[in-house]
Design a protein around this nucleic acid. Sequence first.
DNA 1: CCCTCTTCCTCCAGCAATCGAACGAAGTTC
DNA 2: GAACTTCGTTCGATTGCTGGAGGAAGAGGG
Lengths: 384, 384
Amino acid sequence: MTVDDAPGFAARGSARDLLRLVATGAAESRADLARLSGLSPSTVSQRVETLIGDGWLREVGEGKSRGGRRPRHLEIPGDGGVIGAIDLGAHHARVATLDLSGHVIASKSMAVEVHDGPEPVLGKLLAAVTELVGSGTGAALRGIGVGVPGPVEHSAGRIVSPSRMPGWNGFDVYRFCTDRVEVPIAVDNDANLMALGEHRSARADLDHAVYVKAGTGIGAGVISGGQLYRGAQGSAGDISHCRVVSADPAPLCSCGNTGCLEAVASGAALVQALAERGIPVTSPADVMRLVDHGDPHATAIVRSAGRYIGEILSVVVNFFNPQAVFIGGLLADCEPLLASMRASLYERCLPLATQTLLIERLSTGVDAGILGAAQLIIDRIIES
Amino acid sequence: MTVDDAPGFAARGSARDLLRLVATGAAESRADLARLSGLSPSTVSQRVETLIGDGWLREVGEGKSRGGRRPRHLEIPGDGGVIGAIDLGAHHARVATLDLSGHVIASKSMAVEVHDGPEPVLGKLLAAVTELVGSGTGAALRGIGVGVPGPVEHSAGRIVSPSRMPGWNGFDVYRFCTDRVEVPIAVDNDANLMALGEHRSARADLDHAVYVKAGTGIGAGVISGGQLYRGAQGSAGDISHCRVVSADPAPLCSCGNTGCLEAVASGAALVQALAERGIPVTSPADVMRLVDHGDPHATAIVRSAGRYIGEILSVVVNFFNPQAVFIGGLLADCEPLLASMRASLYERCLPLATQTLLIERLSTGVDAGILGAAQLIIDRIIES
DNA sequence: CCCTCTTCCTCCAGCAATCGAACGAAGTTC
DNA sequence: GAACTTCGTTCGATTGCTGGAGGAAGAGGG
């Protein structure tokens, strides 16, 4: 009512927040930090002092005067350590090293098959990360963030009943990694990491947003109150098995139900549907290529996928009333899909919920997942 | 990762929280408060002192010894003031007075028709509240909480594009009330207030829960992180116009779309559907009576309503992953509806999301709305 | 060149919230 | 009646922050 509603800004001012302001380039000096964080100059000064003492920040030269004393530039030291990131997909993975400000130093995509099972896949990826670290400047590895394409019990780092990861059920990714590498490990769902990465790196001003990952599978990550929202069991955002087609004959899903979103709109589903019509595709990337070449069947099927995703998202948008919906993953690059998803959302949501709703592609693209993985580690190691 | 995830408890310890512990009967002494709030005994003592000074608490006699010194009982004074509450429905309203601990002193149901327009309806209800206050102990009125069956811009107290409240669009309920009564006024959606009331009064331990109100219309309130979640525009929880039936011919909704949840599962929709089959019903209450009497048509239609609600809720549960789903409103008393809603949820949700999910009727019943209205006012006036 | 004004940053006193430890008050138990 | 519990208060100590004074360093005007 009128007066004293919560200000909407999350409480900015923790050591993490100050660091992020420097990392994103929003602040370059103590004065900047004071202005942006709302803290008093004295508080900022003393916080910065401890951050410098702990190696999180460094003074480096001076900036331009704005009519008075020159500000002393702050930056996050490049030699303060590197963070490893793994973003595992169904058919390929992306590994990277990032600096403490969350910027990518080196990255690499590689073909892996999730159904080869956890040990060989994770072993290969950990090796790739250590190789990237080794070929770098020699800065110490501070931790590794891991994203996997299935439900993760985040607090334990274990995989729980994934439908697209045969052989991974109950596998303890956290333990597997900590047994092999002696640094902090954080494991989460790929969609959650995508959400975290895009949010922190591109639109940290949003309080409530939904990030849909449409690749071989379909998932979503949720930001609520400026933070990653996980829900009661940590499965929040998992819209892959929402039923979208009630008519028979509805496609059978790997989860045993029929008409799941994943069974009609995921990359895997599109491949299967086209293959059944005799069109030779073996991967979602093939489908995207066909669409780019103007193949009518592929375009039609991609359009309907967008409609289906929009159908489920319309419920999500009405219920959650976010400020923005982002779409990422392989299928996000496909204009027809985005268009039909938008149409479906605008058609079926409350006008109140869509009047200022942003519906966009990820701005961080394929890097979102590894950016999020790094953020997870930064959050972990920054306090103490 | 294993270790330092957030504790899940919301920060307990504000003056509000202490008061609530006393109000709900969970704590009766300073020692209880210290144990339950996690604060140190000294902090509790001094907080309690100021609360007593401000008239929010009172010492009253001593309790039984538990092997040592007897605790001094604390209670919320009955003469500290009363709170007015209005819970407006489409065809009837409930007004009440409550004490500062949020317990109902007196309540009254009355027939009103929302389509008579805002001035006459609100005028009548405000009069009813002041009458209830007048017939009480003479304690001062501290504020009035108002719930209305449509979207409310909570920060302004104004109604925005309600589909079931002709003539109310844009009406400033807040101003109308403050112009007539010189006490704090708080306005919110009826489903939000139902959620707030049930959560605070019955299950304040839940962090994430969804409260569905199924009456003449259909709405939902959301608790996230122990707090009422409103979303970006304040329309969170509004699932009434989610499309649920893709088959033709889908019923036309008052919003102009077809197949909305409200058009197939609300009380109004059930009345219309039965009337079209020549069964003489004029209100949702009639439908409930028919179901109680075992009328097969009414039971069948109520079952399908439960299934439709469950269908939308399954998306909500997958996405939001709450600990509990509660159902309230007139239709909630109907066992077949609850049963088919449960079936639909269990069938279509991730096992992970439903394995510990509570699906229940409101425990505070018809009072939930006025309980929530009082909580809104308590929140407003308690600080200062 | 000097004086004034601005900006950046630090130092210091002080406030507010909380805690821990010590202690007094009041009871129970054996 | 001595020992042990429980309840509540008092009294520093700590923590986190703020505001103000003021020093450092520069811009600009006469």
